[in-house]
Simulated assay, not measured.
Amino acid sequence: MTNTASELVHRGPLLAAGILLGAGLGGFVDGIVLHQILQWHNMLSNQLPPDNLINAKVNMYWDGVFHAAVWVMTAVGLRLLWAAGCRADVPWSGRTLVGGLLLGWGLFNVVEGIINHTLLGLHHVNEYTADKLPWDMAFLGFGALLLLAGCLLVQAGRHDTAVRGTRKP
């Protein structure tokens, strides 16, 4: 029985690396841009407004826990990327990797938006506006667009079947 090229190609490791990297990096964008630069919210700002030093310190602590979690996701994603790059059966596809990154970032936005903004009400995208819903919906909508773009790129990457020789880890 003869193996075809598609039987020898495994895209899963590169896609998994891209998704974890995308979720971690998307979390960093959220934390750096929305928490620190724009200061629109903190992890607990809807429940514990940072209007005094104690509340601000508690929010800062939970922002740090959040950053530690997205750092771990990014580090694991890098490890998976390294492992995928050492495998001869994994095609090195920019479309698959970038598609995975967009999927991960989109998943981060959708999951974080649904859980933290809607279900738990820990914070909203912009705590300092009267109408928070448009900001939260825009965050979810951006996440959905990232998911769509990621799916399209991953689908396009299915045509990238060139495998490489094994590289040393």
Rank of each mutant, 00 (worst) to 15 (best):
N3F: 14
T4K: 13
S6L: 12
H10N: 14
H10M: 06
R11H: 15
P13L: 06
L14G: 04
I19V: 15
L20E: 10
L20P: 01
L21W: 07
A23H: 11
G24I: 10
G27F: 06
G27W: 04
F28C: 01
V29G: 11
H35S: 02
Q36I: 00
L38K: 09
W40E: 00
H41M: 02
H41D: 02
N42F: 11
M43S: 08
L48V: 15
L48P: 06
L53H: 11
I54G: 00
N55R: 01
A56K: 06
A56I: 08
K57Y: 02
K57N: 12
N59W: 05
M60H: 08
Y61A: 12
Y61F: 15
Y61H: 10
V65L: 13
V65H: 03
V65W: 05
F66D: 04
H67W: 08
W71Y: 12
V72F: 13
G77S: 03
L81Y: 15
W82P: 00
C86Q: 14
A88G: 10
D89P: 04
W92L: 07
W92K: 12
S93R: 06
G94N: 10
R95A: 10
V98S: 00
G99T: 02
G99N: 04
L103T: 02
W105M: 12
L107A: 13
L107Y: 03
L107F: 09
F108M: 07
V110H: 09
V111H: 03
L119K: 00
G121D: 01
H123V: 11
V125Q: 09
Y128F: 09
D131A: 07
K132D: 04
K132G: 04
L133R: 11
L133Q: 14
W135T: 06
W135S: 11
D136T: 03
D136F: 02
M137Q: 13
M137W: 13
G143D: 08
A144H: 06
L148Q: 03
A149G: 07
A149I: 05
G150F: 11
G150Q: 09
L153D: 07
A156F: 14
R158M: 10
R158N: 07
H159F: 08
D160V: 02
V163G: 00
R164W: 07
R164C: 05
T166R: 11
